[in-house]
């Protein structure tokens, strides 16, 4: 198993953001974490990365407890939601810096060409548009060819061509046996690319399974409608709805 999450709980002040999450992420699979704003998607991903310290529970990456070591992050690449970088750095300096910080040599050439940022390598990051910065963000994550890739809203600011390129790269990585976890508000993307969906609501898993199964259970023909149906019934409604095969342990029921 690439990532095992056992009973993760996190509270920010009075607000309980994650309420006993159990999840298993396996290799060779693309997962989409969905849910309304404030449902705990980013907190869950940041907990895996060690950016957020859970109050309770255990997270294991390839059987290593993430609480005791920072080296497990060598197996993970991360695309943050906001592509903000030091303004005075040039793009090539940033790429070098991340390699030095990781103490790992990577060859970014393929991804620099793929996302079309060659002409920006000598530019200062402050002079780049939001979309170009997002492409730099993607190069920084893809170039290390890690076993796990975590992407927080990766398509934000990207033009359609680069969204296609991104999807194609994610599919290639999946074929190579990598584990890919992304959050997105674009449900078409999630439906098209994901093998498994994790639907979070108020810090709890309300659905874990394939997009097709969710559509079947909600008796809807698209993921968009299925999610809308889930949101309309609300957290209490979801618990009471008999035809939803919802398994909060994060395993298929």
């Amino acid at each position: 198993m690439a990532i095992t999450i056992e009973n993760i709980q996190k509270r920010f002040g009075k607000q309980e953001v994650l309420r006993g999450i159990h999840l298993n992420f396996k290799e060779g699979t693309i997962y989409s974490i969905l849910g309304p704003n404030g449902s705990g998607k980013t907190t869950l991903m940041k907990s895996i990365l060690g950016l957020v310290r859970p109050d309770n529970g255990v997270i294991k990456v390839f059987e290593n407890d993430t609480n005791f070591d920072h080296e497990y992050r060598r197996k993970i690449s991360y695309v943050p939601q906001i592509a903000r970088f030091p303004e005075n750095l040039k793009v090539h300096e940033l790429i070098d810096l991340v390699q030095k910080v990781r103490q790992e040599k990577a060859d970014p050439t393929y991804y620099i060409q793929l996302f079309d940022i060659e002409s920006y390598l000598q530019h200062q990051l402050k002079n780049l548009s939001g979309g170009t910065r997002q492409k730099v963000n993607l190069v920084l994550a893809f170039m290390f060819k890690t076993d796990i890739l975590i992407l927080d809203e990766p398509t934000s600011g990207l033009d359609p061509i680069n969204v296609l390129r991104l999807k194609s790269e994610m599919k290639k990585m999946k074929a190579d046996g990598k584990c890919i976890i992304l959050t997105t508000h674009i449900l078409q993307l999630a439906e098209e690319i994901s093998d498994e969906l994790v639907f979070l609501l108020e810090g709890q898993i309300k659905y874990f399974g394939t997009p097709a199964k969710l559509n079947e259970q909600t008796q809807m023909d698209t993921l968009e409608k299925s999610i809308a149906a889930l949101l309309e019934v609300g957290p209490e409604g979801i618990k009471k709805t008999p035809n939803l095969n919802i398994n909060s342990k994060g395993t298929h029921g």
Binding site: G50, L51, R73, P80, R84, P86, V98, R102
Partner: peptide, 13 residues
Amino acid sequence: DFAELLLSQPIKR
């Protein structure tokens, strides 16, 4: 925001 990216790398805080 950049701190987030750097701290997600394999380095000690």
